[in-house]
């Protein structure tokens, strides 16, 4: 299908993009890689009057080593996140999660920032960002602000990014020394996650000293499985101990029931996949 007509603005700086959003009013949309926005426009689920293309903004296309963190521009593609040497070395959870997103063609165009800003409850990268305690750099008419992952994801398809704001970059703390794994369950190769689990585990002398677990599609936004995280700390890195801790993975979650799975099955998946993700991350 063909999208409704819109005005097209090609911004070359973040300030230009913000100015274009302000000038166009509430009815404007940023175009990142377009891999979620284009389907929405083509199915006419939305018909913004103005599209502000930020793919030519150089600032948002770079990955910078900040010492204890990586600053990944919002316009860095999912493919680059999957294959970049810095990301693979210092935030392997993010690169391995990116590899599970969609297919090669979609990954070539879709962006890290677009995926986070879109905030699909079944999106994979937002979950990795939640597990990694990322920070989000947002630019608006009043300047720039930084928001934690806990405050960034608000609800179904809703983030802290306002209608006149642009997500500029995501700050990813390095996780050198942590084991990492993203476990995604879907029925067919192309499908989105029915449930996904991102795990980061620190093991010292056979004991789990720290753990972070985040869930995909177990509620309207990425959820940290804090009870599993607490239960894992101080446990031996063994299959039995991990399985026992993973039993609380679905506690406090609000999974939906849909054609792919009902809430009960999703809860079961959350427990099983958490066990697998943590065990793999811990090298068990």
């Amino acid at each position: 299908m063909i999208p409704s007509a819109f005005d097209y603005v090609k911004a070359t700086t973040v300030d230009e993009a913000v100015a274009a959003l302000v000038a166009a009013g509430e009815d404007a949309k940023i175009l990142g890689g377009g891999q979620s926005l284009l389907p929405v426009l083509r199915l006419r689920l939305n018909a913004p009057s103005t599209i502000v293309d930020i793919s030519n903004v150089a600032e948002i296309r770079t990955i910078t080593d900040e010492g204890s963190s990586l600053l990944i521009g919002a316009g860095v593609t999912t493919d680059e996140v999957a294959n970049n040497a810095l990301v693979k070395a210092h935030a392997p959870l993010l690169s391995m999660t990116a590899e599970t997103v969609a297919d090669r063609a979609i990954r070539h165009r879709g962006t890290f920032g677009g995926s986070c800003a879109h905030a699909d409850p079944a999106g994979d990268l937002p979950t990795a960002a939640a597990a990694l305690d990322c920070e989000f750099v947002i630019a608006g008419p009043g300047g720039r602000r930084t928001v934690s992952a806990a405050d960034f994801f608000v609800d179904f398809f809703t983030t802290a990014v306002g209608p006149d704001e642009v997500l500029v970059a995501v700050r990813v703390p390095k996780t050198d020394g942590w084991g990492a794994h993203y476990e995604k369950f879907n029925r067919t190769a192309q499908a989105w996650a029915i449930v996904g689990v991102a795990a980061l585990v620190k093991v010292d002398g056979g004991v789990i000293t720290d753990a972070r677990v985040a869930l995909t599609n177990m509620g309207p936004k990425p959820i940290r499985a804090t009870s599993v995280e607490a239960a894992l700390k101080g446990q031996p890195a063994t299959a039995d101990a991990i399985k026992a801790a993973a039993a609380s993975a679905a506690d406090g979650t609000k999974p939906t029931s849909d054609v792919h799975a009902d809430a009960e099955f999703r809860s079961h998946l959350a427990r099983v996949l958490t066990g697998r993700a943590v065990a793999t991350a811990a090298g068990v």
């Binding site: 097209y8 090609k10 175009l31 377009g34 891999q35 284009l38 389907p39 083509r42 293309d53 793919s55 493919d79 090669r104 063609a105 979609i106 070539h108 165009r109």
Partner: peptide, 12 residues
């Protein structure tokens, strides 16, 4: 690099 040409605008 591969792209799905139905999911890209000509202006892009």
């Amino acid at each position: 690099k591969s792209v799905k040409s139905c999911n890209v605008l000509a202006v892009q």
